[in-house]
Write a protein that binds this DNA or RNA. Structure first.
Length: 262
DNA sequence: AGTACCACCTGACGGC
DNA sequence: TGCCGTCAGGTGGTAC
């Protein structure tokens, strides 16, 4: 479930492996993931060039391959990057393979084909076209207060709405609400000033701590609910049983004891 | 505007 | 052992 922290880790991984290496060949075994672009256009855009930088917005990764030339990746539910040399370390479901002249390859692996691959001349216009909200780590408090202070949506679907904030999905929305002590069913605009402020603070805190933990539940702080998001998980705060419930079409986990309804 | 539901896709898992 | 239904969850569409 790559959400903002996971994609940030992919970005760092890419930056530490695949930048400034000449691209020799490009394969697109997963044409189904291509969006508004042909495989030959992707090959033509990348072959002979090199990746010079990467940017992330929400769950999207933008990789620059020249002036006005960006490779855009979305990881869907199961996507990840792998930089490798030997064929026996090639991941199981490569959908895009970039061969470098140094003998290494970068794979976008995506078991369930919910990811996307496309090209863009400019990340900013891509973000605008998709109507993505600001990155969840770069939110102006006034914007946040306005969006969440007027929305009639429940808190959980509101946090997951990419038009409000970009980057939060099912798992991290649970964590943010848990850290903020807010009930997922609470109507967004019913929040008081204090809770509203706290929600924004916790959003940043949770995402930053998740990145520090390398988006790995095993490394997250003991106070996090994420490692307990399963059948009979217990609240890391009060030890009570977590509740599992369908909210906005997603499976939510929360602590009915620690997360009060407003 | 918000919600509910479906489809996309593949693999894991539980029940029988 | 093996078949079948269900679940996982990001996005995007439709209908209400």
């Amino acid at each position: 479930m790559p959400e903002l922290p996971d994609v940030e880790i992919f970005k760092q991984y890419l930056e530490s492996t695949a930048l400034n290496k000449e691209i020799e060949k490009v394969e697109v075994p997963g044409r189904e993931l291509l969006e508004n672009v042909s495989a030959s256009a992707v090959k033509k855009a990348l072959r002979g060039g090199y990746f010079s930088s990467a940017r992330r917005h929400g769950k999207y990764l933008f990789i620059q391959a020249g002036k006005g030339r960006w490779l855009v990746l979305h990881f869907g539910m199961t996507g990840f990057l792998k930089y490798f040399k030997r064929d026996d370390s090639r991941p199981g479901h490569p959908r895009l393979l970039i061969h470098f002249t140094n003998g290494f390859q970068l794979a976008l692996d995506n078991q369930r084909k919910f990811g996307k691959i496309t090209l863009s001349e400019d990340p900013a216009s891509f973000i605008e076209e998709r109507e993505l909200g600001p990155d969840a780590l770069q939110v102006d408090p006034a914007y946040f207060r306005k969006k969440f202070g007027t929305s009639r949506a429940r808190l959980k679907p509101a946090l997951m709405n990419q038009k409000y904030l970009a980057g939060i999905g099912n798992v991290y929305s649970d964590e943010i609400l848990f850290q903020a002590g807010l009930h997922p069913w609470t109507t967004s605009r019913d929040l008081g000033e204090r809770d509203m402020k706290n929600l924004l603070v916790q959003t940043g805190r949770v995402l930053e701590q998740a990145i520090e933990s390398r988006a790995d539940p095993g490394r997250m702080p003991a106070s996090f609910i994420i490692p307990h998001r399963h059948g009979d998980g217990q609240c890391p705060g009060c030890g009570g049983a977590l509740r599992k419930e369908r909210i906005g079409g997603r499976t939510a986990f929360y602590c009915p004891q620690c997360q009060r309804k407003k």
